[in-house]
Design a protein around this nucleic acid. Sequence first.
DNA 1: CACAGATCCATGACACGTCAACAACACGGT
DNA 2: ACCGTGTTGTTGACGTGTCATGGATCTGTG
Lengths: 160, 160
Amino acid sequence: MSEAMGLDPADWVMWREMTAMRAGVDRALEHRLQRDAGISAADFDVLRSLADAEGHRLRAGALAEALGWEKSRISHQVRRMADRGLVDRQDCPTDLRGTWVVLSETGADAFATASCGYVETLERTLFSRLDADDRAAMRRVAAAVTDGLLAPDVQAFPTR
Amino acid sequence: MSEAMGLDPADWVMWREMTAMRAGVDRALEHRLQRDAGISAADFDVLRSLADAEGHRLRAGALAEALGWEKSRISHQVRRMADRGLVDRQDCPTDLRGTWVVLSETGADAFATASCGYVETLERTLFSRLDADDRAAMRRVAAAVTDGLLAPDVQAFPTR
DNA sequence: CACAGATCCATGACACGTCAACAACACGGT
DNA sequence: ACCGTGTTGTTGACGTGTCATGGATCTGTG
């Protein structure tokens, strides 16, 4: 596989290293959040979005867009978080289809508790390992790739 | 959140961009594999490991180590793949606890079908966006971070 | 006003990953 | 041979993500 299919072996190694990096950092964050505040990374992302939002509340659709998630994922996630008291759900008065997702006091506490360890873990596993040049390069790479993702999956051939 | 907790805003942006990059590339790969060969990224990783292995077979533990997965994950994954005929399971004669995971003909076919689109998607979404400097920087970053991951979660303070 | 299509979200079924517990086996020393 | 310990892999429970589907509501057009 490495040398087959016209892919530069060095690129292949790079891809595996990228995968390992992301897996490691994600795992560290997950464990830390779980231990500090008993929440998952997905929980934390939702709490952060709500904490950043005006009035600590977002429409479900806006939340989905902010996180780049599917709407059904938001729905499941918010239901589970509401069951645990991390968020509240309120019907939207102006659009009866809509739902407001509101940060609860419990959720705000959990977020405050978790944030510190989250940043610390990120600092320890990621940033502390990178100098200014590394960071600049990393941002260049990430920006270039995400830009390209807007052009969707053309030229794909269905084999079955 | 962005400016709070002593994290450089630029670092924060970098982290979000990294997350978006990985999510986008992963998503593109998943969809492509599903469409081309009806398999998931996890399936593909297993098939690739087996295809690379001597005799197209690996012990479950070796597979777990090669992929950096938990043993139970391997067990579940292999069971599902065996149900679909992508791999075969054989008892190990020399160590009766052990299990050989063997690439089946169906699995080899699926891997061959999938590989091309996989590499092509990776090329399109990732490598085509990066010049030689970017790739070198990316490898430097990934290596530095994964190195740091070996030192486990010290200095963590339980907040609850 | 009536209706067709779009939008917003919820739900159920299914695949997946993690954790804790467990069973079977290997291997060392005595 | 025996016993304790570590290894190998499986299983079940649980939380999670995706997909397909459906119900409710809004909006624009005739």
